[in-house]
């Protein structure tokens, strides 16, 4: 646990000293969503219909864009090898890095989401399920993304490759995240969708750090 907290503290400090990086993710999120009223036209009904999907897709892309930083900088300056050598299981290190990734990208996205809901004319009932679904879904995105981020270490053209690897795996989260909001707007309970999102998270929590650590290990060979 000490090792876990030490890595979380170190990476958070690094993130704060780099300052604008995590704000950039939120800026991307907002701008990507704002493009849609220009693209599909500003009719309130159309916007309300597509709002949950657009917000979720933008959150997905924003979370993916910041994945490359997850291991890449540590890999390049060699500190990832030192992190792998320390007497803490590599799985814990990966888990700590995922936690920091969520704190610096997932959490700002959740905070920014209601604002985007207003811009996209999201029906009032939709806010609560959107926030809950994002809270349950974005950690899963960070967890799955960590595997992809570890797999591309040392490859050519990593960023583009990362999107090809990770986006297909994000689809289940997207489907249930959007449908949780849609059913509540339609007047039903979102409990099944939210339970499945929690299930995905609970499944990803032990499995993804494990696979991610295996990927980091082969990346360091």
């Amino acid at each position: 646990m000490n090792g876990f907290l030490a890595i979380v503290r170190r990476d958070l400090r690094l993130a704060f000293r780099q300052g604008l990086d995590s704000l950039m993710v939120v800026a991307f999120f907002v701008i990507a969503v704002v493009l849609f009223p220009f693209g599909v036209g500003p009719q309130p009904n159309t916007l309300a219909r597509i709002a949950p999907g657009v917000i979720w897709v933008a959150a997905l892309l924003a979370s993916m864009l910041s994945l490359e930083r997850l291991f890449q900088t540590d890999y390049e300056d060699g500190s990832l090898e030192l992190l792998a050598l320390q007497p803490v299981a590599l799985e814990i290190t990966v888990m700590a890095k995922v936690t920091v990734h969520w704190l610096t990208t997932g959490l700002p996205l959740i905070v920014a989401a209601p604002l985007l809901g207003v811009l996209m004319n999201l029906p009032e009932d939709g806010y609560m399920p959107l926030m809950i679904a994002l809270t349950l879904g974005t950690p899963t995105l960070s967890l799955i993304g960590a595997i992809g981020a570890a797999l591309i270490l040392g490859s050519r053209r990593g960023g583009i490759l990362l999107s090809l690897l990770v986006l297909p795996l994000y689809i289940p989260v997207l489907i249930f995240g959007v449908s949780a909001v849609d059913v509540v707007i339609g007047g039903f309970s979102a409990k099944p969708q939210l339970l499945i999102l929690s299930g995905l998270l609970v499944g990803a929590l032990p499995l993804c750090p494990w696979a991610g650590a295996a990927a980091v290990r082969q990346g360091l060979e």
Binding site: I147, L151, I152, L169, A211, Q218
Partner: peptide, 12 residues
């Protein structure tokens, strides 16, 4: 490297 990385991806 490529075959190891992609093996992990295939399993995931």
């Amino acid at each position: 490297r490529g075959s190891k990385a992609s093996s992990i991806l295939a399993l995931v």
